[in-house]
Design a protein around this nucleic acid. Structure first.
Length: 438
RNA sequence: CGGGGCGUGGCGCAGCCUGGUAGCGCGCUUGUUUUGGGUACAAGAGGCCCCCGGUUCGAGUCCGGGCGCCCCGACCA
């Protein structure tokens, strides 16, 4: 994309309504615009990030056997009356009437809908297990939206639902999903730690929140340093092997982590003092097992091996995709702007033409740009060098390919790594290789 | 929903107390200049002062009502 033609309105001054870093940076970098309280328009660069996150989520969910569907945003109230949640959910649920006075609602979650879908389709234990997920806009009429997209009313979320024949099987689905989540967050370039969460009326130990560690997080967290050292990108655990899932369960149960709400001083004392870590975190995912709550309430059952019907066990698994955009920025920024992890950056690199109109600069910039016009942002504006440096830092491209008249004559370019500030003087071929453009 | 605050060119704000021709900085346009970290000068464009009603000769300013947004709290992917 040529920046001179891009719809990417960066702001020099900070909009008054934004209080926290990610919100300010998202507005300043031209990723989103607010259109109503807690409701945002996603501008091209922001949308790119949102999609890249969704793509990673999708790939990793598919990798553990998830099957993607797309359920609607609007749901019939009848569905929710069947589960009893139409009255239980409260004013957080946005209720709507159509012209025939039929009651609808803008979905805050999809347990009812997916259970109904499953029940009307699956009739035998032989078809289990099944895991369905979708990535869709949701609406929760928060009392007080804040922190930009981190706590919006409308939000983009991946929610998945597993159906199993027994509690034991459901446990495997649960830990398979946990493994998928650990890999997702690893690929997104953030450190996210699963922490035991309240299980509600079902009880048990099968509920975890995933928190991205960031100094501005809403929750205080305590965890064993080993969580920092685990590399889920190279983990050999196989989501299809039950013994590997047992091993994961073992790791999770033995490696302490908790939010302040669930923090247990006695267990904490058992963590070696030099291994204790505490900080703040932002909740970006939540997985839990809830048994037959919805299959019972909605009368969904399948035939077992002996011919008698039973209610499948369910789990549900959420990831706040739009919230993650804010959370990643909270975890990865500095005074100058955003520092995008490579896998989620809207553009893999920016090309800064320090002197548009200069023959050698233009030619060299074009050479880089033509390698990947879709994936590169070419700052070809007739702005001063300083403006371009500042905007590039603000927008947080992982690499800046800096091309000025000084080096261009000799075929040299400067590469700046946003995350470290490191600068390299390289030949054209070296630079292409470094950014992965050849 | 309780408490607090704000609504004035695209953005950030002043003006309101004490009513009398709507201002400043940034951005934008044009020209000159500058050219490796938000250049400088000059000339311009751009405003139902959130909405409705009231008081007044006269309302951005005072009064009443509404709407919107933000912050703190309780609540949440």
């Amino acid at each position: 994309m040529r920046l001179s033609q891009a719809f990417q309105p960066t702001l020099k001054e900070i909009p008054a309504e934004a209080q926290i870093a990610s919100h300010r940076l998202m507005l300043r970098a031209g990723l989103v615009r607010q259109t109503a309280s807690g409701i945002y328009t996603w501008l091209p660069a922001g949308l790119r990030v949102l999609r890249r996150i969704a793509t990673i989520v999708r790939e990793e969910q598919d990798a553990v056997g998830g099957q993607e569907v797309l359920m609607p945003t609007l749901q019939s109230a009848d569905l929710w009356k069947r589960s009893g949640r139409y009255d239980a959910y409260g004013p957080e649920m946005l209720r709507i009437q159509d012209r025939q006075k039929r009651e609808l609602l803008y979905g805050p979650t999809n347990e009812e809908m997916v259970t109904d879908l499953f029940g009307s389709t699956v009739k035998s234990y032989r078809e289990l297990p099944k895991t369905l997920y979708h990535i869709q806009w949701k609406f929760r009429d928060e009392i007080r939206p804040r922190f930009g997209v981190m706590r919006g009313r409308e939000f983009y979320m991946k929610d998945g639902y597993s159906f199993d024949a027994s509690y034991e099987e459901a446990g495997y689905s649960y830990f398979r999903m946990m493994l998928s989540y650990l890999r997702i967050f690893h690929r997104l370039g953030v450190k996210a730690v699963p922490m035991a969460a309240d299980t509600g009326p079902i009880g048990g130990d099968l509920s975890h929140e995933f928190l991205v560690l960031a100094p501005t997080g809403e929750s205080e967290v305590f965890y064993h340093h080993d969580w920092d050292l685990m590399d889920w990108g190279t983990s050999p655990l196989d989501p299809q092997k039950s013994e590997d899932l047992d091993a994961l369960k073992e790791i999770v149960s033995k490696t302490y982590s908790a939010t302040d709400e669930k923090h247990d001083e006695a267990s904490w004392q058992n963590v070696p003092e030099d291994k204790r870590r505490s900080g703040r975190g932002i909740e970006v995912g939540h997985i839990f097992y809830f048994g037959t709550k919805y299959t019972e309430a909605m009368g969904v059952s399948v035939s077992g091996a002996d011919g008698t019907a039973f209610h499948p066990h369910m789990g549900s698994y959420g990831i706040g995709v739009s919230r993650l955009v804010g959370a990643i920025i909270e975890a990865s920024h500095d005074d100058h702007g955003i520092i995008w992890p490579d896998n989620v950056a809207p553009y893999r690199a920016a090309i800064l033409n320090l002197r548009p109109g200069d023959e050698s600069c233009d030619a060299l910039c074009e050479r880089f740009y033509q390698c990947d016009p879709e994936g590169l942002l070419y700052d070809d504006r007739s702005e001063r060098a300083g403006v371009k440096f500042n905007d590039a830092d603000l927008m947080g491209h992982p690499w800046q390919i800096i091309i000025g008249p000084r080096g261009a004559k000799n075929g040299m370019v400067e590469l700046k790594r946003r995350a470290t500030g490191e600068r390299l003087e390289l030949s054209v071929d070296e630079a292409l290789a470094k950014v992965g453009l050849n």
